[in-house]
Amino acid sequence: MSTLRPFRATDMLKFNNVNMDVWTETYGTAFYLNYLARWPDLCCVEESPSGRMMGYIIGKAEGQGTNFHGHITALSIAPEYRKLGLAKRLTKLLEEISDGVYHGFFVDLYVRPSNAIATEMYEKMGYSVYRTVKEYYGNLGPGSEGSAAEDAYDMRKPLSRDPHRKSVRANGRDVIVSASSVT
């Protein structure tokens, strides 16, 4: 059982059980507040009845013209609450708001190709790789402890404003772009 509720600024004081995770980044305060000050409806928490945070999503809406879209900036579920469909529920909420409130054309996200579990999960939810961004992350994932850069998959899922699925393509993994062209 879990309660879906808005992400609040003070949640930063209690999100440790979610963030003490190898794949989850803890950003500076300004980072979270910047999202809350602009897209509070795209930042949500799943909470257990005892008040323990189970996971959260942080997102934004950005882009011009047909590129206007929802973006999943962070999505993380604490280890003990995984495989319960929480990520799916949070993503779905973000998709709905991106669709119904912001009227975006698609939702996208970046993921490390080395994080196979996450990539697979997004694929199950209807996302597909749109392109591979060369050396997007500053280092190889936490497992490697290396300082070399790692690529990112830019994954997308079309929304109702894109009925012809123009925002996705079949061979996205082979479309390679440089990090400087996307930021």
Binding site: A9, T10, L13, L33, L36, A37
Partner: peptide, 23 residues
């Protein structure tokens, strides 16, 4: 926080303001 508080006013996210100040 104070920089973001200003932003919350600019973008009119009133639901956030008391929480920012509390944090």
């Amino acid at each position: 926080v104070s920089e973001q508080l200003v932003k919350a006013f600019q973008f009119e996210r009133y639901s956030q303001i008391a929480e920012f100040v509390l944090l």
